[in-house]
Simulated scan of single mutants.
Amino acid sequence: MMKAVIIDDDKKNISILKSLFEQLTLRIEVAGEAGSADEAGILIPQLKPDLVFLDIEMPYGNAFDLLDQLMPVDFEIIFITAFDEYTLKAFRYSALDYLLKPVDIDELDNAVKRAEARIGLKNINTQLSNLFYNINTTLLSTGKIAMPVKDGFDFVNLDEIISCHAENNYTIVSTNSGKKYTCSKTIKEYEELLPARTFFRIHHSWIVNANLIRKYHKEGRSGYVELTGGATIPVAYRRKDDFLAKFGFS
């Protein structure tokens, strides 16, 4: 018997899942339920489930915020999502199971059986790392990147991003609409993820969109740049030559 937890902010969806379990006579014991990422972050470590049914879009933090908090995990996951085709490709490439709303009974049956077979393999953390990478690399081919918000993701056009700023192990991504996103990825991860032809790490704490640099000011040893919107960012001395070379100066 697999011990399961269901994470969904809609109690109707939880009831539907339980009803489907009964119809399929699946070997699942629902040990607990939670309606938000915060509740789930407390419940899951307490109950230590074998399997978590995880709705991606929740109030006050989404599924990926929760998993960032819990990593590494020691349970299997079946995601429940209404996401678009680009994001579903990322799930497929990562060999993780997902169910589309409304949940189909046959797909649920197959997903649970696959999860049961995977429990002893302990591959879930590698699969999750691949998922986080694939969500954004799949989107990048469309000129977008996924930014976490409390009820899911904003898909932001790359040309809207002005800068990325490191704050400890988080990164603040600023856009030309004035909106800022606090992301759990490090500045190094964004340096590797964003296309180098457009984004340049100008300082150990800053990545800027080269297309949105309005002016370079020669001041001190290395100077600073002025971006669209008026923000000014220092150029690190050891990055100055590479920065100038990018624009044809040396």
Score class of each variant (00 low, 15 high):
K3I: 05
A4Y: 01
D9P: 08
D10I: 12
N13R: 07
N13V: 06
N13H: 13
I14Q: 13
S15Q: 12
S15F: 04
R27H: 12
I28P: 01
V30A: 06
G35V: 03
A40T: 05
P45L: 06
P45R: 07
P45S: 08
L47I: 13
L47Q: 03
F53A: 02
L66A: 05
L66I: 07
D68L: 00
L70H: 06
P72W: 09
V73C: 05
I78N: 02
T81D: 10
Y86K: 14
Y86W: 11
T87D: 02
L88N: 10
F91M: 10
Y93V: 02
S94M: 08
A95I: 05
D97E: 15
L100C: 14
K101D: 09
P102G: 12
V103W: 03
D104W: 03
I105H: 00
D106L: 11
E107P: 00
E107K: 14
L108G: 02
D109Q: 11
N110R: 15
A111M: 08
K113R: 15
R114W: 01
R118Y: 10
L121C: 02
K122L: 05
K122R: 13
N123A: 13
N125K: 12
T126R: 11
L131P: 03
N134I: 09
N134R: 13
T138H: 08
L139F: 14
L140Y: 05
S141P: 00
T142E: 14
T142Y: 14
A146C: 07
P148T: 10
F153N: 03
I161E: 02
E167S: 15
Y170L: 12
Y170H: 14
T171L: 07
T171M: 07
C183L: 08
I187V: 08
E189I: 01
L194H: 01
A196K: 11
R201C: 04
H204D: 10
H204N: 15
S205W: 03
S205H: 10
N211Y: 12
N211L: 14
L212I: 02
I213G: 08
Y216G: 06
R221Y: 09
G223R: 08
Y224G: 03
Y224M: 10
E226C: 05
E226A: 04
L227K: 05
L227C: 04
T228S: 13
G229H: 07
G229M: 03
P234D: 12
R238C: 06
R238Y: 09
K240N: 09
K246V: 00
F247H: 10
G248R: 11
